[in-house]
């Protein structure tokens, strides 16, 4: 009898704990720091990139919304363009072991080559700690951190929530707008949007 009463309390307590761990990232405030290992085995700390704008792009190569932007070479074009202008582009995968999108570093390197990814690195976050700290909900979900280390964009890649790559040319690219503003030292016009995509497979 007692166990029946205690179980919901335990679940509630766990839920509360999860809520506290969820999304410490706050727009306009310093972005949460982290250190993660990339697919080549190199460790990257957010602090290493101080002085440069940083993009965090949550990804899962088997998600249809990610396939939309990689299949049409849209994501790669954005990576190439903004890395050339001095930004750091970090793709992040928070898929847990056994879940969709979780791959070994070797498999990831093959996938990145196939995609023609032009990201600075792909960071592995299999325990989801960095994803949860940022409140990454979907793949893709994009964050922009300015050169001063503040979180200045949190949201969707663009304004056309669909899996159809034909929607890309007519879409308003929120990530381009945010990066153009950050590179020009101007305020980001739309700092927060609702990200669209598959859920991150924590």
């Amino acid at each position: 009898m007692k166990a029946k009463v205690l179980l919901p309390i335990l679940i509630a307590a766990l839920a509360l704990g999860a809520a506290q761990a969820w999304a410490q990232a706050v727009l306009g405030a310093p972005a949460p720091g982290f250190t993660l290992t990339d697919t080549k085995g190199a460790a990257h700390a957010l602090a290493d990139f101080a002085g440069k704008p940083v993009v965090l792009e949550w990804t899962n190569p088997d998600c249809p919304f990610v396939k939309k932007h990689y299949g049409a070479k849209n994501m790669q074009a954005l990576q190439t363009k903004y890395v050339a202008q001095g930004a750091v582009w970090l793709s992040v995968c928070s898929s847990a072991p056994g879940k969709q999108g979780h791959f070994s570093a070797d498999d990831w390197n093959r996938i990145l080559a196939e995609q023609g990814s032009a990201a600075t690195a792909l960071l592995l976050d299999p325990d989801g700690q960095v994803g949860l700290a940022y409140g990454a909900k979907t793949t893709p979900h994009l964050f922009v951190i300015d050169a001063a280390g503040n979180l200045v964009y949190d949201g969707a890649i663009d304004d056309k929530p669909s899996t159809d790559s034909a929607d890309i040319p007519g879409a308003r690219s929120y990530i381009s707008e945010a990066l153009e503003a950050v590179l020009a030292g101007a305020p980001v016009p739309v700092a927060q949007t609702k990200p669209y995509g598959c859920s991150v497979k924590y």
Binding site: D62, C63, P64, F65, Q100, T163, D164, C198, S199
Partner: peptide
């Protein structure tokens, strides 16, 4: 057009 999901999503 639709999107269905379970553990993963299929359009």
């Amino acid at each position: 057009d639709w999107l269905i999901c379970d553990e993963y999503c299929v359009p």
